[in-house]
Write a protein that binds this DNA or RNA. Structure first.
Lengths: 165, 165
DNA sequence: ATAATATGAGATTAATTTATCTTAAAATCA
DNA sequence: TGATTTTAAGATAAATTAATCTCATATTAT
């Protein structure tokens, strides 16, 4: 349903949120793209591209040079999963019926348009309700939200560096 | 959520079902791959590949030579959309959480596993309940189920040839 | 048998998505 | 200012998916 690129974006923002010192601070430390990449097992060059896109979409702020890197542009509680999806994949997947390759015309819908729309709406609503702060919270609790990023691999190091826990 | 290939497969079987003379006849006429392709606006060579796959999966029967072509292997009421999905795409998409690129471990699930699983199960259940007969019925009623295949384009011709209506 | 009609199968090409590489530009710090 | 660090940008490559092409094989009909 979502592209790999989009999942990379989501995981990156959750990780950024989970190593934030305080939930609402605006002046937060920047995290290196290469650190995010290594902790999440995402190709370094690729995560740069994804994050850069999110910078343009105003979800992330970047800073060049020493002490530079990436940080969230808004409070984690104010960024929903669907915000990220919109920025990366767009909404087409949430407007297309299962048996069609293109959007249904509401006036001339496909045979299971009404069923499927319910499903799509539900998915969309869920993604629009979950904030990355909630997921970051689960990461902090030690839950394995980010598939390849565990306490033992990458996360502990990052937390230490940023003085978390 | 489904590959284009899979949607092609679904649309082909719905069209096959909608030009069946009787719902339960076993000895039905074969329809040419090229007719299906043209009516559905699917590349001819490609639909062949898709249908051939469905022949191997026992959902379709093919016959070479004059009077040959493709026909359903079972009654349309006995083929669900999920049967086709299983045959073409497999079930991976219905077992993978939104924020993950790989299957969640039930013992160590991601932060929104339980929500998302509900959604996936619902989608799967729906696809497993809808038979291609139901959708073929809508086609017969003149509804535009098959996105590019309308009465004016392809369908009328096919119906005529097979003595439907 | 032979010719014509269809699918079968495998190789090839094209398009899209994902990943990598290289160089440029900006920021920091000495 | 100059060296270093880090993202920006664009080109290139690899992988995956979708589409095309060619020839083989099976079936029917004459």
């Amino acid at each position: 349903m979502l592209s790999k690129t989009c999942k990379y974006g989501i995981q990156s923002l959750i990780l950024l949120a989970s190593i934030k010192k305080s939930a609402d601070s605006q002046i937060d430390e920047y995290v290196l793209g290469k650190q995010l990449a290594s902790a999440l097992s995402i190709p370094k060059e690729y995560i740069h591209k994804v994050l850069h896109n999110l910078v343009n979409k105003k979800l992330v702020i970047s800073m060049k040079g020493p002490q530079g890197g990436f940080r969230l542009a808004r409070a984690p509680a104010d960024i929903t999963l669907f915000d990220i999806v919109k920025a990366i994949d767009g909404t087409a997947a949430f407007e297309t019926c299962v048996i069609r390759t293109q959007k249904c015309d509401e006036d001339n819908p496909c045979g299971l348009h009404h069923y499927w729309r319910k499903n799509l709406t539900q998915a969309r609503t869920l993604l629009d309700q979950i904030t990355i702060d909630e997921l970051a919270d689960e990461v902090r609790k030690g839950k394995r939200v980010l598939e390849f990023c565990t306490e033992d691999f990458g996360l502990k190091e990052l937390k230490k560096q940023f003085g978390i826990n």
